[in-house]
Amino acid sequence: MGLCEGRVVIVTGGGRGLGRAHALAFAAEGARVVVNDLGVGLDGAASGESPAGRVVEEIRAAGGEAVAHGGDIATGEGAASLIATALDTYGRLDTLVNNAGFLRDRMLVNLGEDDWDAVMRVHLKGHFLPLRHAVAHWRAEAKAGREVSARIVNTTSGAGLSGSVGQGNYAAAKAGIVGLTLVAAAETGRYGVQVNAIAPAARTRMTEQVFAGLEGVPEDVSPLVVWLGSAASAGVTGRVFEAEGGRITVMEGWRPGPTADKGGRWTPAEAGEAASRLLAEAEEPGAVYGT
């Protein structure tokens, strides 16, 4: 019996890189997998390929069960059809791994509005819409009195946690995914849903140009994703993990640091003096990638 025996798992962006590794790892642990991928290039442009189908073939060749989905999950119709594919094919849905995304890197002064919008769309809408449709299903199940042990694993990035020079759009989108994860975890626990995020670091076609020094591979990240997507992770929700190679880190996020309270309104000069004192007591922020 694998860790995910009997579970039905959706992986978006599952045709290549991290998504492919996740899909294969879930299947190896007994899950039936819906592999979603539009088959686009690194910048989101259509490529005419069908990588989801190839991953499905790999899973079936190894004795597993999988089905491909080629819809655009950053649209309401595509996200709804993704959830419907799992339910129509396998009769249930247990885990959603939001992984789809692409890059359009530019320094801020050269970053076009279209490039900003495209990256926000695929990462933020591409997380929100599948999550929304999956949670609607699980809420209905819970309200009907059926037990729900559902999992959502979102994909943020070190760029979203620390910033990354030349990736203002991507960093902002990935930081937004952290906020979405925290809200979703707080709102959906009552329905039996756990929501966490990973910040993976691995050599993929997306990172080999920007972070050439990365040595980990996607398969190093997938074991944590599989565990988070399984029933074995009961009680773990609203967390963000970094994963690179053999290293796993629980990120602790924004916490209140040194504080000063005058009990009334500051003057600008007083506020500056107080802020300077507090900064002297505070920890230095981490370095931004690329600096």
Rank of each mutant, 00 (worst) to 15 (best):
L38N: 02
E65K: 03
S81I: 06
L93E: 03
G76H: 07
S81V: 09
L96E: 08
F26Y: 15
V34L: 10
N98K: 04
G71D: 05
S47Y: 01
D37N: 07
G71P: 06
Y90D: 15
V97L: 10
V35S: 06
R54I: 01
Y90S: 08
G64D: 05
G78E: 03
E49W: 03
A68Q: 11
G44H: 00
A52D: 14
T85C: 14
L42F: 01
A28T: 04
G48V: 05
V35C: 11
L96H: 08
G76W: 00
A66N: 02
G91D: 13
L38S: 05
A79C: 08
I83C: 11
A100H: 09
V40T: 12
A100I: 03
E29A: 03
S81A: 10
G70S: 06
G78P: 05
V55P: 01
G39M: 04
L96S: 13
H69D: 11
G70W: 04
N36Q: 09
A28M: 01
P51F: 00
D72K: 12
G53W: 00
D94V: 10
A31Y: 15
G70A: 11
N98Q: 01
E57T: 04
R54G: 07
G64C: 11
N99F: 07
F102R: 11
G91W: 02
G63K: 01
V33Y: 15
T95I: 03
A62I: 01
A86F: 15
D43F: 00
Y90H: 11
R32T: 15
I83M: 08
D94R: 08
A27T: 15
D105V: 04
R60E: 14
G44L: 06
E29I: 00
V56H: 08
F26C: 01
G63C: 12
G44S: 08
G48S: 05
A25Q: 03
I73L: 11
G91E: 06
R104V: 02
E49R: 13
V33H: 14
R104E: 06
G76R: 06
H69L: 02
R54C: 02
T85G: 15
D88L: 04
R32W: 13
G48R: 13
V55I: 08
A100T: 06
I83Q: 09
T75S: 15
I83S: 14
G44C: 05
G53R: 00
A27D: 13
L82P: 10
A31R: 09
N98L: 10
E29D: 15
E49S: 07
F26R: 00
E57Q: 10
A80P: 07
A31G: 13
S47M: 10
S50Y: 07
A31D: 11
R32P: 14
E49Q: 07
A79Q: 14
A45R: 10
A52M: 10
N98H: 07
A68N: 14
H69Y: 12
A46R: 13
